[in-house]
Design a protein around this nucleic acid. Structure first.
Lengths: 185, 185
DNA sequence: CGAAATGTTCAACAAAAAATGAACAAAGTG
DNA sequence: CACTTTGTTCATTTTTTGTTGAACATTTCG
């Protein structure tokens, strides 16, 4: 409520937005950013995503959109898109702060949630797409002229298609198991 | 040995290299390629990798470098680099074929091996790099002026750094477990 | 309502990644 | 050896992806 109380001041635009922390990253923050940018790279995600997440990860209080843009010296566009992606993964949540209209962002730090978001948004769709394509593959296989049906070649291809189905089954079974394994022990 | 026998023919360069299969992909092969290219995309790997692997996956016999280049209508450069990457992952092996000097490539189709190759080549290095950065993070944290050491902010950051170490431990433990889970049941 | 604050979208630009192909090495072959 | 086959390297081009910033909503406030 103290926040609600000081929400009135009409001076903010002139300067005090800058009040909630220096524009410059501290040495420790720099290390966090460096670490997460590397991590982002390794997953082939845009660097900006790593920067934003790192900043939030290293911040005790929720940060506003503007604070992120300023501290990371990043364009509004990137910040907006980056935050959207992070939210879609469940890696960042928007929190409500009384008396402040602006969004305030916080990092989700539970590994299990992060991984499960990643699986849900990136891997699951790929598996689904894979299922579709496997379907089409079957169709193509059945379209093979029936004269050729008994050839070794045909048998081989059928075999390989089955192997793919095995892969899919494995993925559908073991990925959720992996997530469970990550439970806060 | 039949291969060794017909290895002599001196006509090959003029045309018959094309002899070992049509340059055009069959409808079924096209489906395989389509499927694996999609898969490659989902892992953010170059499309050429998906094409090559698909072709080998769908081929009963080992294929030569040249056959790959021709059937996929791909540059030699791409094929060379793609094959190198695939081999580094253990996704493709070179087999010896008697009487033929050329390399012959085969796809590894055991999911467990593919995943473990992926972890070894892509994830493990990232984890190592992460460990390094975590080290530097600790250093930066210890470099904080001792006056500030007792602040809530400092405690928070220390906490977050520990959280990261927890992530690492989790990764080191559960990824190998995942691979085991993929064992040919 | 009009002005200010807060975000989002999207066309244009920049940077990064992948594909190409010609030059180069290596290893047979006659 | 000279010559061919086989494959790799790498500078260049092409394609893809990410970033920027200005225009455009939307909401709040006086």
């Amino acid at each position: 409520m103290s926040v609600a109380m000081r929400a009135k001041p009409r001076v903010r635009s002139a300067l005090p937005a800058t009040k909630s922390g220096p524009d410059r990253l501290s040495p420790v923050e720099i290390e966090f950013v460096d670490l997460f940018v590397g991590l982002a790279r390794s997953v082939k995600a845009p660097k900006s995503i790593g920067e934003i997440y790192a900043l939030l990860f290293a911040s005790a209080e929720p940060l506003t959109f503007d604070a992120i843009v300023r501290k990371l010296a990043m364009s509004r566009g990137s910040a907006s898109q980056g935050l959207r992606l992070l939210r879609s993964f469940g890696a960042v949540k928007a929190t409500y702060v009384a008396g402040d209209r602006r969004d305030h962002f916080v990092a989700e730090t539970e590994l299990r949630k992060l991984v499960s978001g990643f699986l849900r948004e990136r891997i699951a769709p790929a598996l689904e797409g894979g299922a579709d394509r496997l379907g089409r593959l079957s169709v193509a296989l059945n379209a093979v002229p029936s004269g050729t049906r008994r050839s070794a070649e045909f048998e081989f291809l059928r075999h390989r298609a089955e192997r793919l189905q095995g892969w899919q089954r494995m993925a559908r079974e073991s990925l959720p198991a992996l997530v469970k394994m990550l439970d806060p022990t």
